[in-house]
Amino acid sequence: MEQGALLVTPKPEAVASASPLLEAARRVFLFVSFRILVLAITVVIAVYLTILVANMGGYVDEIRRAEIRERVGQELLANPSFRTLSPDARARLQQQRVQQLEQYFGLDRPFLVRSLIYLRDALLLDLGRSYQISSDTGSRQVRLILAERLPPTLLLLSTSNVLIFFLTLWAGLALSRRYGHLADRLLIALTPLSAAPAWFYGVFLILIFAATLRWLPFGGMVDVPPPSDSTSYALSVLRHLILPTLALTLSNFFINAYANRTFFLIYAGEDYVEMARAKGLKGRDIERRYILRPTMPNILTSFAIVLITSWTGAPILETVFNWPGLGRVIYEAIGLVDTPVIVGATVIFAYLLALTVLILDLLYALVDPRVRIGGPGVEQGAP
C-alpha cells in the first residue's frame, strides 16, 4: 500500500441525496434574489412617482415660496423696528429672510435634484418633517405622526377586514353547496349593494342608530372625557367601533361572498371532484381535500391583501366617523398638500406590500404542489 493521504470515495447514495438538496437550495436562492431585485426596482419607481405626483411636478415649490413670502411679510410688518427702515432696506431685509427660509427648506436647489434627495431619504425611511400637520404631542416628525395614527386604523380596518374575510369565505362555501336555492338567488340580487362605498352606509347608520335611536355614538374613538378604568375604556372603544365596522361590512360583504361562491363553484365542477363523489367520499372531505386545498393560494392572497390594505386606512370613512386614524391624516395631508406625510405613508405601504408579495410567492410553493420555485412555473395536472 502506497504511503500518502487516504482518498475516501463518497457512496453513490450520499451523492444522489445531496445533489437534489443542493439544487433545490440553489433554485430557492436564485428565486428569492431575483424577486427581491424586481420588487426593489418596483418600490423605487412607485416611490419616485409618488414624489412627483405629490409635488405636482414641482408646482408645490411655487406654493411654498408664496407661503414663505407671505409669512416673512407678516412677521416683518409686526416688527416695529422694520417700519422705521427705508423702502430699500425693507426690501433687502425681506429678500434676505426669504432666501434664508428657502435655503432652509431646500427650495434653492432644482426640483429634480431635490426629488432624488427625497427618494433617497424615503427609501432609507428618513421621512422628514410635516409642513402643517402635528402629532398630539406637538411634533411634526412624519414617523411620529404616522406611528400615532396607525393603531386606531389597524384596530378599525383589521377588525373589519378579518371579519369580512372569514364571513364571506364561510358564506361563499355554504352557498356553493346550495347553488340555485333561495339564499343563492338572494345573494346575487343583493350584490349591487356593494357598489356603494362604506362612508355612504356610514352616513345612514349614523342617522339611524346615533341621531334617531341614540343607541350608539355619532363618531370618535372613545367617549369624551375618556373613562378612567381600562374596562370602561375598552367598552367605550367597542361601542364607537360598531358603526364604522358595520358600514365596511355592508359595503364589502355581498360582492366578496359572491366572488368566493363563484370561485368555489368553478372548482367544484372539476373532473377530479366528480370522481371523488363517484367514489363515495363525504361532502366535507371533498370540500377540504379537493376544493379548499386547490383554492388555498387564492385564499392566502386575498387574506394577505386584506391585512396589508389595513395600513392605508379609509380616508373618507374615518372622516365621516371622526375616527383618529391614518386614513384621516392622509386625507388632511392631501387637502393641505403636505407632501412629506403623503410620501411617508406611501413608502411604508410600498415596503409592506413588497414584503407581502415575496412571502406569498414562497407560501405558494408550500401549499400548492404544482408551483415550483425557480422552475418553469406551474406544472399541469390535478392537485
Score class of each variant (00 low, 15 high):
L353M: 14
V343T: 08
L187E: 04
T309G: 07
L353R: 09
P152V: 04
S158V: 15
A40E: 04
P324M: 07
P87I: 07
P315G: 02
R92L: 09
L39D: 07
E23S: 12
L241M: 13
W170D: 04
P244E: 13
L207M: 12
P294S: 14
A78H: 10
S134P: 00
T50I: 10
F166A: 08
V32Q: 08
G219W: 07
L146C: 00
I291C: 07
A189W: 12
T245S: 14
V341Q: 05
T339V: 15
A276V: 09
Y201V: 12
I308N: 15
G283P: 02
L182R: 13
R35T: 06
A189H: 04
V222Y: 00
G335M: 11
V44Y: 11
M275G: 10
P12G: 07
Y351N: 03
P10Y: 04
L52H: 11
S17Q: 15
R129L: 06
V329Y: 04
L173Y: 10
T309Y: 10
L163G: 13
S115P: 07
V367C: 06
V72S: 00
L205A: 09
P152Q: 02
A18N: 10
P12L: 13
T159P: 03
L190D: 06
M56R: 15
L163F: 15
G269L: 06
R64P: 01
L85G: 01
I316P: 00
T309P: 01
S176W: 07
R143I: 15
A78G: 12
I45W: 09
R185Q: 15
L156F: 03
G57E: 09
G377A: 09
L205C: 08
Q103H: 03
I255M: 02
F303N: 08
T84H: 00
P12W: 05
T137W: 03
W215K: 04
A147G: 15
L146F: 02
Q132A: 14
I51G: 01
R129P: 00
G138A: 05
L52C: 10
D223G: 08
P324A: 06
L238T: 11
P20F: 05
I305V: 15
E274Q: 14
W311D: 07
V38N: 11
S176F: 06
E2F: 11
L116C: 06
Q74I: 08
A333N: 09
L123K: 11
P227F: 03
V113E: 13
R64M: 05
P10E: 01
